[in-house]
């Protein structure tokens, strides 16, 4: 009998094939759902812009050219220039980079902490669970943005501040979601089977429970990305986040506000528009992901 095949270490192609077979259904659903694909397209584009900002930007985003102040959109400056003569397109491209870094780091941090807190609270319950959940309740009891403002003021402005602040107000969302998922998953047969195998509690949480509860967390990740972008921009807009001259969507919109009445719309409109498109992309993707990843659709 040929028993050699499974004894070999599987080749990389084999792993890819197994992976593709595992996700062929998701790929199929994604193809059938053009709106999600649009969202995915937007996000890929935004990410590429963020990564290749130095190559894509035609000008230095900080270079002041006083001769070119407040020029409207033209072939030379596609999005026009601002009140210091800086190229808005270049600034929007660099802003994309900064905002994506902020949003991704903040949401990742929130997800990491939230998932662990939620998993522990859900699995152990009892006093540990109560304490964790009540602390999260306190965080959620404050209006998120007011809390963020207070934190930003006390921590001082800067990139890291925004990341911490946005992560802080998002932890409860992930923790709650994870807890409810764990609560429903911990009674499943394979968890009991793991207990029978003599697996330790940490092993059960990290090896069995979290991977099975991660799907809605991923959807929440995409959804939270849009909120994170919005929060970061809002903080910068009111002057608590990124300070000029560094390019950031919110602060760019803020800088252009004074010129709207005089008809020089491009200062605010272009960064605002790009931000809106990015947020739309994440929302569309999150919506579609829910459909794609919902196991109930598999039957």
């Amino acid at each position: 009998m040929d028993q050699v095949y499974p004894l070999k270490r599987p080749s990389i192609w084999h792993v890819i094939k197994v992976f593709m077979r595992r996700y062929d259904f998701e790929i199929y659903l994604l193809r059938r759902n053009p709106v999600t694909l649009l969202g995915l397209g937007i996000i890929v584009l935004v990410t590429l812009i963020a990564i290749f900002a130095p190559i894509l930007a035609p000008y230095d985003p900080l270079a002041l050219t006083s001769a070119d102040r407040l020029m409207g959109p033209s072939a030379v400056h596609w999005m026009g220039t601002d009140d210091y003569g800086r190229d808005i397109l270049s600034r929007v491209i660099y802003a994309t980079r900064l905002d994506m870094v902020i949003a991704t780091s903040a949401v990742s941090m929130a997800m990491f902490i939230g998932v662990i807190l939620g998993a522990v609270a859900g699995f152990f319950g009892g006093i540990i669970g109560e304490v964790i959940m009540r602390i999260l309740d306190v965080i959620q009891a404050f209006p998120a943005f007011i809390l963020a403002m207070a934190l930003a003021v006390s921590l001082g402005s800067g990139k890291m501040t925004i990341i911490y602040v946005v992560a802080f107000i998002m932890v409860p969302i992930f923790a709650r979601l994870m807890r409810s998922e764990i609560l429903s998953a911990r009674g499943r047969g394979y968890i009991e089977a793991a207990h029978c195998m003599g697996a330790s509690e940490m092993e059960i949480i990290f090896k069995q429970l979290i991977p099975n509860c991660i799907t809605p967390i991923l959807v929440q990740f995409a959804l939270s990305m849009s909120y994170a972008i919005l929060d970061a921009a809002a903080l910068s807009f009111i002057g608590l986040g990124i300070r000029p001259p560094e390019a950031e969507w919110g602060s760019m919109v803020n800088a252009g506000v004074g010129y709207i009445t005089s008809g020089q719309l491009w200062l605010s409109v272009f960064p605002g528009l790009v931000m809106a498109i990015a947020i739309l992309g994440f929302n569309l993707l999150a919506d579609g992901m829910r459909d794609v990843l919902d196991p109930k659709l598999r039957s």
Partner: peptide, 11 residues
């Protein structure tokens, strides 16, 4: 267990 689909980790 009774329900084999439930007693195997789906992932």
């Amino acid at each position: 267990f009774q329900d084999p689909a439930d007693s195997l980790n789906p992932r």
